[in-house]
Simulated scan of single mutants.
Amino acid sequence: MANAIPRVPELLLERLASAPGKVAPWAEVMQLALYEPLVGYYRQGVRRIGRGGDFYTSVSVGPLYGELLAEHATGVWTAAGCPERFAVLEQGAHDGTLARDLVEAVHRHHPELAVSLRYVIIEPDETLREAQQARLGPEFAAHLSHAATWAEVPEVQGLLICNELLDAFAVHRIEFTSEGWKELHVTTRGDGAFEFVQGPPSTPGLQVELERLGNDFPIGFVTELNVAMLGWLAEVSQSAFTGEILLADYGHAAREYYIPERNGGTLRRYCQHRTDDRVLENLGEADLTAHVNFTRLAEQAVALGMTVMEFIEQGRFLTHVAAHLLRRPGFSPDPAWLRQFQTLTHPGHLGHAFHILALQKGGWESKAEPDAGRRAAALRRLGMESAPIH
């Protein structure tokens, strides 16, 4: 009988036993818990999302989210002059439900775009690739292709969609002390349980971000830094993709992210629709997330030569997109459509908790007039008033 695969806590104990000082930065622990092949939370096959899973997403509300993003994609295509080749890229596609909903909506409402549409999913996990292929089915198989990494993405132009991708990146957890910032590492207590201990910054990238963050914090203030998302955006910048980048996620502008009332940070554990801060428990069996600092992400985008197009609550963004649908001759939303729309846009549901950051990376010269007012408003919300609008 084959030996059982060690679970995440067992793997972590092995790593700590051989690590200097028997400690590991939280970012490494979170990466292990979420992405270790076969045992990480996101590497155990297709996860159930929605009522039967650990959390809800906009995609699990129903097909309307994909339909609205199809409408937005059509607007991007039209503004670019209706090119003969247009790609929608997605990273964090899970089982391909959003891809199916979007492609179906394009075929149903915009057959002229469907002729040009190509759907590219960036996905290293072979099991998820197979699930995505199966979800789109043979009728849409010709539209779909995969890339394992951004280096493999072909030269395409269009729209990149990332729905709840960045909040699942492994973050560094930090605490402000009388000696300045310390990184929180993980070790074991005498009873074998895991615990946090203070230590020095584990990477040069973290040290740079700590210096940017400054020292205007009370002693004992705990938060997190998502250095990985900055590296991810650099990979996107260096890739052959050009066009609009649409990032939908939990998060805040920096001025809200680091308010005193948020001492403890935003790092949370999700399990069976319950959330708490007991992130060292059930490693590998529960989702771990941290909100996105959209200001820092936008600053990185500008430094990489991208343009900030919009920063807005999901509810307002989708309401604006839905206006195009509502103006369509003969369109009459049914009760299911209205229920999904309310869940996606109402401030008490997903409309306020999620934000949309839209960026532009090269691409076509838009045939539409640039909306300088919308860009200026985005920079104000992000606290980046001095940044160039372009």
Results as ranks from 00 to 15, higher is better:
L16P: 12
L233A: 09
P260Q: 04
E310L: 15
W181M: 07
Y270D: 00
G180L: 08
A168E: 05
L288R: 11
R278G: 03
E14M: 15
V227C: 10
E310C: 14
V120F: 03
G53D: 00
V302I: 15
G284N: 07
L102D: 03
Y56I: 08
Y35R: 04
S366V: 03
E104Q: 11
L210Y: 06
H252D: 00
A170T: 05
L350T: 00
R328N: 05
R43G: 05
R85H: 11
R189I: 05
R316C: 05
I219G: 03
I121V: 15
L338A: 14
G305Q: 10
L136A: 03
Q272I: 03
L89I: 14
K361T: 11
R108V: 05
V61Q: 10
E67W: 04
G21E: 10
Q31R: 15
H143S: 14
R48V: 13
A93N: 09
Q198H: 07
E126W: 02
V120C: 13
V308C: 05
A376I: 03
V197L: 12
R7C: 04
H72F: 15
D95V: 04
V153C: 11
V156A: 04
G363E: 00
N3M: 13
P154R: 05
R43S: 14
H143L: 12
R108K: 13
I245F: 08
K361R: 14
A24K: 13
N163M: 07
Q157H: 14
E164P: 01
Q272D: 01
A105I: 09
V186L: 09
P20N: 06
F176S: 02
L210K: 04
C271S: 13
L382I: 12
E183D: 08
A99I: 09
G96N: 04
V8G: 01
V39S: 01
H352P: 04
S58G: 12
E104G: 06
G92P: 01
G220F: 05
A254S: 11
G192A: 09
S145T: 15
H72C: 02
H172T: 03
E90V: 12
L34T: 11
S58Y: 07
R316L: 07
A24C: 10
V59T: 15
A303P: 00
H185F: 14
I259K: 11
N3P: 03
A114V: 10
V171N: 02
